[in-house]
């Protein structure tokens, strides 16, 4: 009896959770398809007019391309730096490995705005005033913790004697790493890389301090649209972002499996 009530509460909470979590997404998609200019869900008729107006949004395409470029760069650098550091932490015998791992993951737990202003002041003091290099460097700090976290988890399950086996069979050490370790760790690379990539694409608190007029990342541009022209064109942009995120997750699911991604 009590068990039944407990289960009912749990299922009720889960269904409530899902409805609650999906509500803003559903509404955004709905508003983008409604002919009404005042943020209404479509009543009967569906219209693509807000999508046709996407081209009129100033600087949208530029900001998308800039954000993709930054995220791709930051993810690539983080995968290299993160993998090396994760191997050192998992395999090394030096003191302070735990502290080192915590340090490299810590940007994820600390307030983005604080990191942002700190970087702004430091970069200025060092004479770095250009937006693009600042953003590229800063976003590595955004992505690296995701890669570190999934890779240390993945590596601690990796059987390193496989590498010795590969070397006994005549592969050089770098070749053994590429041919044996990389494929086994692929799920960790994909999961860490994917979530890091998305975090970089969505980063606002750090980017806001480092952008200039010519380099506006997508989140900064989006927030500006919301401030100045609150019409459903923003809903159309948001719907495209939802679709892209869903697509990336589907790819991730095919390659790794959602359950495994959720376990991180």
């Amino acid at each position: 009896m009590t068990r039944g009530i407990g289960l009912a509460v749990a299922w009720f909470a889960l269904i409530g959770c899902i409805v609650f979590l999906l509500a803003p997404l559903v509404v955004t998609v709905g508003v983008s398809l409604s002919p009404s200019p005042v943020f209404q869900l479509p009543q009967g008729e569906i219209s693509w007019r807000w999508y046709e107006r996407l081209g009129r949004l100033d600087g949208l395409l530029d900001s998308v391309l800039l954000s993709l470029q930054i995220a791709a760069f930051a993810t690539a650098v983080s995968l290299v730096l993160g993998t090396m550091a994760a191997i050192a932490v998992v395999r090394g015998t030096f003191p302070g490995r735990e502290t080192l791992a915590t340090f490299l993951v810590s940007p994820l737990m600390l307030p983005g705005l604080v990191i942002g202003i700190a970087m702004l002041q430091c970069f200025r003091a060092l004479g770095l005033r250009d937006a693009l290099p600042s953003l590229l460097i800063a976003h590595v700090i955004v992505v690296l913790p995701f890669v570190m976290r999934t890779l240390t988890a993945g590596l601690s399950l990796f059987d390193f004697s496989l590498l010795d086996a590969a070397r006994t069979l005549g592969l050089s050490y770098p070749k053994a790493v590429i041919r044996v370790m990389v494929p086994v760790l692929a799920p960790s690379f994909i999961t860490g890389g994917l979530f890091g990539f998305l975090a970089s694409l969505d980063n606002y608190p750090i980017s806001i301090f480092l952008t200039d007029v010519y380099h506006r990342t997508l989140p900064i541009q989006l927030l500006q649209y919301l401030g100045e022209s609150p019409d459903p064109t923003v809903a159309a942009v948001s719907t495209l972002i939802i679709a892209m995120t869903a697509l990336l997750l589907i790819v991730g699911d095919r390659l790794v499996g959602l359950n495994r991604m959720a376990g991180v």
């Binding site: 999906l22 803003p24 997404l25 979530f195 998305l198 989006l222 948001s238 959602l258 959720a262």
Partner: peptide, 14 residues
Amino acid sequence: LLPLSLSVIVKAFG
């Protein structure tokens, strides 16, 4: 996972 991975700005807009 979909809301978790989705842009905060998009959710806030919703």
